[in-house]
Design a protein around this nucleic acid. Sequence first.
DNA 1: GGAAAGACCGCACACGTTTTCCGTGACTGA
DNA 2: TCAGTCACGGAAAACGTGTGCGGTCTTTCC
Lengths: 323, 323
Amino acid sequence: MKRPGVRITDVAALAGVSAGTASKALNNTGQLSQETRARVRRAAAQLGFTPDARGRALSSGRTYTVALLTTDSSGRFSIPIMRGVEDVLSAGELATILCDTRDDPLREQSYLRSLVARGVDGIVVTGRRTEPRPPIDVPLPVVYALAASTNPADASVIVDDAAGAAATITHLQGLGRTRIAHITGPANHRSAAERAEAVAAALCTEPLFGEWTERWGRQATDLVLRQHPDAITCGSDQIARGVCDRLRELGRSVPDDIAVTGYDNWPVMALASRPPLTTVDLRLEDLGRRAATLLLESIAGTPHHGVLELPAQLVTRESTLGA
Amino acid sequence: MKRPGVRITDVAALAGVSAGTASKALNNTGQLSQETRARVRRAAAQLGFTPDARGRALSSGRTYTVALLTTDSSGRFSIPIMRGVEDVLSAGELATILCDTRDDPLREQSYLRSLVARGVDGIVVTGRRTEPRPPIDVPLPVVYALAASTNPADASVIVDDAAGAAATITHLQGLGRTRIAHITGPANHRSAAERAEAVAAALCTEPLFGEWTERWGRQATDLVLRQHPDAITCGSDQIARGVCDRLRELGRSVPDDIAVTGYDNWPVMALASRPPLTTVDLRLEDLGRRAATLLLESIAGTPHHGVLELPAQLVTRESTLGA
DNA sequence: GGAAAGACCGCACACGTTTTCCGTGACTGA
DNA sequence: TCAGTCACGGAAAACGTGTGCGGTCTTTCC
């Protein structure tokens, strides 16, 4: 299997040095004169030399590849996180390989074996839910994103859901709203419970648990209207969109009669809603960037321990501010 | 950098053979007695041996990795395609690395350099639009998915948009609808033009071009109603959802007064719409599977040439059939 | 019994890079 | 002038696996 690529020996020959010296020159290691370094660099540039990752990996142990292991088949969460991860890693010439476990433990095991065999430098583990998850068992640097590891000694980066929910409340209260209802997803989902708890703490009101769907948002609206609220905070943008739809059908004005907030800042929901939703952006790209940074540090030998909570960001739109 | 992993020499030692023999036994190459092969296999299983991908890549040239190069930052199209690709490849122990170019040619070039340096076995190129795209210049097997290469000598797999659109028409005609209008996206989008052309060919009606948004769907509904249609086919599920919303606001029943069809079968739109949309499923996973199969064949030395059009599939729901 | 054929396996090298170790030459200070 | 130090760069050994070639041992046939 001959590949026509230019090898480091070619560069070395052109520069009039040995292969080892060329390697040192290109990697800024060893002690070489500035002149030699520059000469090798020129030769490499002239030949368009790109080091073969296979040889490099075998020799140095580093493979300059990290994996993003996710259970989020839809990509709704993992894609933004991956963008953040890549922002950080591509600067260091690292590649990211995406592994979708499809929530299948067997598939996850199979991926992990493969990743260890490939010698990836590290792994970012993420998911579609925020429930803490059991750690993966690999002899590699690992960082958990969005869903923390149940092992507190691991490094995890998550979103501060409580603060995000609290931000919607203070925003609404700042607008003079006092009778605030809360409609959210299943009570056994951590993200629903966490957000609802933050809301309840501020308001002493009873949250309505259901599903993460527009339909539930519409249904719950009818229930919640009996309390004559002047604002409804929702656990997701889908629910909020359903709420807005139902309110419009009932002839209630949003936000004049009732203000509505969502959660997630999912563009396809938050922007398509009528009116567009004030909501909480999860800052998933930040999450990815932070996770990648921690992973790099861990790879470099200074691992981080414990859970890091990143702030979410309130995004205000017409559903609370009006036109 | 000592890795504690078990090497093939360990397996060979346990089986009482040389490393080379162990390699042949595990890869079913060379000529060895069945007994020896079995003994080596047992030893490998006992030690939990997994061949180191780095050494294997360097030696054989094969890296058992393929890349999915995409311009679709949202993942709306690339994620399903990737699932299909992985379905086919993971059976052969190949890993898939996802590269999101974010529509940036520089980033694409940078990724390609990196991929070639890594020695990936092949590349699947895809995107968020169906416009044919200029081919990438790499000395590797490449298959284009969703968006064909402008070079007819390349292998491309795309969706038969015309047939998909025609399927909605025959479906509606089969239901007795005769005055069918068409609302779709920008005229300069290939997927809009292709679908509109198929519709126009069947109906001799003038399509309405606009944007891929619900808002445009709502606006266009008012325009199109002057023609007193008994069905409206849309170029996307987003548009169709907007149409349904507007019709309901106007007191028109879907599908009793007017049937509506979408396109894409994007769950978050097609299922959340009221009523749920009859639409055309792009079969993106099939697309991915087919692309991966072609890529494997190309890697094996028998490349395919030309464009392969895969059929889309009509999915019927309440927006044409009623409850 | 000898030779040819075949089955089977080990040896040694290749793959491309990094890295350790060591040698050479120059320079410094006494 | 000589020893000691330092800067620089070359040789060679890894890293782990795949594979061509040749050697050995058994079998078979004359």
